[in-house]
Design a protein around this nucleic acid. Sequence first.
RNA 1: CGGGGCGUGGCGCAGCCUGGUAGCGCGCACCGUUCGGGUCGGUGAGGUCCCGAGUUCGAAUCUCGGCGCCCCGACCA
Length: 565
Amino acid sequence: MTRLSSYFLPTLKEAPAEAEALSHKLFVRAGLARQLSSGLWTFLPAGWRAHRKAEQIVREEIDAIGGQEMLMPVLQPAELWRTSGRYDIDELFKLQDRRGADLVLGMTSEEVLTFHVAREIRSYRELPKILYHFQTKERDEPRPRAGLLRTREFIMKDSYSFDRDEAGLQHSYDLHIEAYDKIFDRAGLRWYRVASDVGMMGGLGAHEYMAPCPAGENDVALSDAGYAANVEIASATPQPVDGLPEPLPAPERVETPGATTIEAVSNMLGVPPAALIKAFPVIVEGKGPLLVLTRGDHRLNEFKLQNALGAPARPAEGDEVPRLFGSVGGFIGPVGTTVDVMADEALRGLHGLVTGGNELDIHLRGVEPGRDFEPTWADVRSVEAGDTDPTGAVIRIEPAIEVGNIFKLGTRYTVPLGGTYLDAQDGEHPLWMGCYGIGPARIMAAAIEQYADDAGISWPRSLSPFDVELVGLGKEGEPAREVAERLYEELRQAGFDVLYDDRDSSPGEKFADAELLGCPLRLTVGKKGIEAGEVEAQIRRGREKRSLPLEGAAEAAAELWQSLP
RNA sequence: CGGGGCGUGGCGCAGCCUGGUAGCGCGCACCGUUCGGGUCGGUGAGGUCCCGAGUUCGAAUCUCGGCGCCCCGACCA
């Protein structure tokens, strides 16, 4: 029985002042969730219903590819994390028990599951396996933000595959792609599957599922020809340089007093920013100083740089520029430098360029990579809107919420944690592992972001906390209410989850609350309608109204339901 | 971690500069009214003014310290 008169659904006319993102405001206003502290949220009954709808979709599709649901603890021994090398991650919550034993709160469960699998699985005959759970994840985020979008505690479905070899892993990975595609379709989201960074921990490949929306924290590069990648790793053909200066036989010194920025040099010398070389002095971990070059109008991409180097790099600071690079901040350049130089591919073949002269107030013009200095070439710039993909299609960049990710871990965890199996011929081998995450709360947030309008949330029917909100106008005891009570029963008989607004409040208030909560279908029973022998149906998405016959209203609603988004 | 902002009934805010009985709107309770788009009127309840110390006859207001929350950036296997 879900009657609004007694249901805990505290709706608000105004959003809390600190709420910025649309989904944050609506989570609170619609009575779905309340904040406890920074990055900590309580799901209220309606919000939890939607969460469980999202979970169930995920559960069904992971089961469909052979996943087996289980449950592992949040509280985990620190030892496992030391063994895997993840103990020093800043986001990992660390604590001790009363005896002083070190424990952690799990961010994910690779260590725990590999621990078990290493002990229980011995033979190739027991492979492959896909195991998963829905469990609370704890992360000491430096900055929780945007309501439910980035929290310190959240529930995640994490599945893990174990295979005999890389081909097996690829198969499990493909199965997850299949499942994930279905999950996000069923959730009613607009989504992209994009290639993503494999991160510091290494790995053989990864994709992220991205739901585009303005509040999204990630940027994805997309083309109509099907190119899709996180901008962290995206590659593209740069836009040509318009107005490249004529080549010179050799670099030429030019005085540029005080011109330490791309814009200043560009203005002073009358050349486009794209004809400048931007030089970044960086210190590569374990290797030392390196001068990284990009076109003046491009941005260095730290992820791609790190991947190209195979090691982390940080900007040079303090006296490192004069000491290690023999240069002057603002006037750094590759010509005549003593350090290694890495140039972005977009600079290849350009001529007549302007670079820093490694002296105060001096630049060089007419510079040509390959002639005037010999760099290592690499693709280390961030893709920009307007670049083109390999087919020539134009790339656009959209913000998006990461709603899921899939990751080929390989033997990253099984080797340190001793996860091996015995094969038919030549003995022991490490297990090949994949991990696959989905955040149901982010699915909810993405759906809210993507479909909300001025009146509030507009749930896809697969996620809505209730299928139908039935509004009974008038007051208790009036004829409209008796009809509404009857219809309530009929709808429930027909298999609908119904939220029945049986409050004695004004019509406007009921309509406003219904649209705020955003169930896909609203049915209104009022005096006027009864007299005309009809029930009003409002389709939340688009707010279109239709009339259903009072007799057989539940059947008519069931039919209408089939056509809803 | 760097930068910025905010903490005053449940929510949104004013008051603070210039120290002197804590206010408004919404919500809530009750009475009446209205009854298909947050009706209208009346009455009422509800506040450690984030915490601590200091200045002062007197602190929401001034000073110092702390805590919390939000936003931007960094960060986000």
